[in-house]
């Protein structure tokens, strides 16, 4: 192995081009990441009797049941993303502008949940909202609001809360990174020129931090779109593409259909990746 760009490279070393160092990683991903996905795409367009067919995609995009699942997947991800923006922005603003010496603690509290396993967090929601969980105990015993415990776990609202819980730290960090680079003198100028607090925020701070919201939103949307464990454990009757792939694999065993659904998820992911790259490039320019 050699360090790249050696100015005083020995003749023996110059035979080895530095870019060759990337070859093992590229080959590995080409073989075990790209090829499986291509193979998966092929399975979705090869018919039962051989020969090519677009039938599965037609079903996915025209059959009202499958169409509803696809739309529900995208809407769920979009909804979770929106909630993350609304909740995450004030926290990011606090972290960058108000936290001061508490900033370290805020960052620690944001990152600490990432150390817990996804099963632990999902289980936590089940405990909070179980029949004998904290919420029901309060409502029934402490306040006597209800006569019998509610069946709260396994409802779409809890699943959405759990998804937000997993994803909102990414949003806060993305917004905070951009907010950090916003020149506070611009805000001061707006105030000196007579703009009120809200107007300064809406017309100066918010527009200048849109890139952070964009970066965070794409990231959150992308992860929410493929989310699986949270929905399996807390789903509450929500039907999304990842859950359908899981069911097709487990019970229906229609692998062609599962492959077609995987490809649709993949196309959405690639589109998000493309948007992400454009945003990064624009910010770099």
């Amino acid at each position: 192995m050699q360090a790249p760009d050696q100015p005083a490279a020995k003749p023996a070393a110059s035979v080895i081009k530095p870019w060759l160092l990337t070859v093992p990683a590229i080959l590995f991903l080409a073989a075990f990441f790209v090829l499986p996905l291509i193979d998966n795409g092929m399975r979705s367009i090869v018919g039962e009797t051989g020969g090519l067919t677009a039938g599965r995609y037609l079903t996915l995009l025209t059959d009202s049941f499958y169409l509803r699942v696809t739309v529900a997947t995208v809407l769920l991800s979009a909804g979770v993303t929106l909630i993350c923006v609304v909740i995450g922005y004030p926290v990011a603003y606090f972290l960058v502008r108000k936290a001061g010496r508490w900033a370290g603690l805020v960052i620690f509290l944001l990152i600490a949940p990432l150390l817990t396993s996804i099963i632990m967090r999902t289980f936590g929601w089940q405990v909070l909202f179980a029949r004998r969980g904290l919420v029901n105990n309060f409502l029934v015993d402490q306040f006597g609001v209800l006569s019998a415990p509610l069946r709260l776990a396994n409802s779409p609202e809890i699943a959405i809360a759990a998804l937000v819980h997993v994803l909102v730290p990414f949003m806060v960090l993305a917004i905070a990174t951009v907010l950090q680079s916003v020149d506070t003198r611009l805000e001061e100028s707006a105030k000196i020129l007579g703009a009120g607090r809200w107007r300064t925020f809406w017309e100066v701070t918010l527009p200048l931090s849109l890139d952070g919201i964009g970066t965070g939103a794409i990231l959150v949307f992308m992860i929410a779109n493929g989310s699986f464990v949270t929905l399996v454990m807390l789903g509450g009757g929500l039907q999304t593409l990842p859950l359908m792939i899981y069911q097709q694999f487990n019970t229906t065993r229609d692998f062609g259909m599962a492959s077609a659904m995987s490809t649709i998820l993949l196309v959405i992911a690639v589109f998000c990746l493309f948007l992400q790259l454009r945003l990064v490039r624009r910010r770099g320019a």
Partner: peptide
Amino acid sequence: MPMIVIGFA
């Protein structure tokens, strides 16, 4: 990429 797609494929 969605993990479930990587796993299934």
